[in-house]
Amino acid sequence: MATLIQAEQLSRYFGDHCAVREVDFSVARGEVLGFLGPNGAGQILINGIDLLDRPREAKSQLGYLPDNPPVYRELTVQEYLEYCAALHRIPRPARYHAIEKSKRRCGLESVAGRLIGNLSKGFQQRIGIAQAILHNPQIIILDEPTVGLDPIQIREIRALIRELGSEHGIILSTHILPEVQESCTHVQIIDQGSLVLKETIAGLERHLNTAALTIRTRDPFDFRRLQSLPGIDNIEIISPEHCRIHHDLENNPAAGIAETIIASGAGLLALVPEKKTMEEIFLALTSRQEAEEPCA
């Protein structure tokens, strides 16, 4: 798969504070790369074009949505998109089609004639995305696209991101961990300027699995009877109907546990593999960094 964007030794300083230190990353078509933590700029190659040496060509391959949608409140949606189309040097005959397509994808057809300032935050966010995909860029950079939206809007935007991800390379910067789980194919976590995790979402799921099961029953049940099953390390009894079992990673005893409890007639209510939340992973990864020296 062709690499669309490649960044090497990216560093970003705010005064003496280092926000990003020598981070490398790349994105290919059909990938959605989630960035957790701050973002910055250094050497960036877009489709093999250097952003600093040939900014104009590189930027025409790039769609960008900053954390606040860059909309002019006094223009209508249609006027705004026409202006953006002109800015992105879309040739005049192709402009109408590009705007229509972009409006359709972001669900803006019904509000095209309205002033942007009178629309809700959710719509403004979608206008921002419409602007970023207008010129059909290879790379779309979205900076915290779901901040300040209600849950329905968040779901819509995430669905849109997933849909866009099939055709474009997307870099998603966010601090909301479930968003990464839901929308991304790859994830990178940055803490204090350094990359602490670089994984696919499947790899991340593996990080999320712990060797623990939570069991609930309808009637009281003597959980110590399960001790004899293969693979069980430790049983933690919380109440007569509730316990947590730690087991061997390679040897999952869930099937055996279920059979035993059902055979006893105690009524199995729940048998749930415990998962670490993204927050716990994030904390585990970032606290590990703390011992190292802070960047200069």
Binding site: P70, V71, R73
Partner: peptide, 14 residues
Amino acid sequence: RSKTLPLLISAPVS
């Protein structure tokens, strides 16, 4: 101030 400058900066405009 209204954060619309990134639109101009990220567009292929010098």
